[in-house]
Structure formats: C-alpha cells, structure tokens
Simulated assay, not measured.
Amino acid sequence: MSTPYLCPNCKSNRTRFNIIEQHVKSVKLDPQTGDIIEELEQSSLDPFHISYKGPYYKVQCGICGSIEDELSFIKRAQLS
C-alpha cells in the first residue's frame, strides 16, 4: 500500500481513500432459514465449494464513493 492512488472514476482524488480489508468466511447455510449451519476452513472445503479467489483489499474513493479493486486505483495513478 505504499503506491500512489488515483480514483479511476472521478479522476481527481489522490489523497482521500478508505481501505477495505476483506476477511473470507466460508459457510454452509440452511436453505429455508438462511441460518449458518457450519463454518468451513479453507483447507477443508468440499469439492462443490469453491474457495475465494478475489482481492484481499478493496479501495473506496473518499470523494465520489466508488469502490474498486486496489489495482484499479494503482493503475490509474500510473497512467497520469
């Protein structure tokens, strides 16, 4: 996170951002109630449960509110 950011949406913000850390929790839900039946460890997922492969960080622009992957903000800053 020691890389400059530039909002890919409003293209003016370089200083005000919200860093969103994503913490994955794999679960099995009851289909009728939506209650959590079981929390699953990433190492013990069954063959029908795909593990999360998304980014660890998301970034929100503190000016326009746009939320994107961190890489989008980094790449936009590199282009300017």
Score class of each variant (00 low, 15 high):
I20T: 06
E41R: 03
F48P: 14
N18H: 13
V27D: 03
S44Q: 13
V59K: 01
D35C: 06
G65H: 06
I63N: 14
P55C: 01
C61Q: 08
G62S: 07
K75T: 15
A77R: 08
T33A: 10
R14P: 02
L6M: 01
I63Y: 10
L45G: 02
E38P: 11
C61H: 07
E39R: 13
P47R: 12
D30P: 03
F48Q: 13
V27W: 11
C64K: 07
T3I: 11
P31W: 02
F17N: 00
I37F: 04
P4K: 08
S72L: 11
S12L: 12
I50M: 11
S51E: 15
L6E: 07
P4I: 10
L79Y: 00
S12E: 12
L40V: 04
H49A: 11
S43G: 07
C61K: 02
S43I: 00
F17W: 08
D35F: 01
F17Q: 04
L45F: 10
Y57I: 09
L29S: 10
K53P: 07
M1G: 10
T15H: 08
E70I: 09
K58V: 02
H23I: 07
T33P: 08
K28P: 05
E21I: 15
S26K: 15
E68L: 05
I63T: 13
P31E: 05
I37W: 03
L29M: 09
K53Y: 00
S80L: 07
K11T: 08
P4E: 08
S2Q: 10
D35Y: 02
F73A: 02
D69P: 04
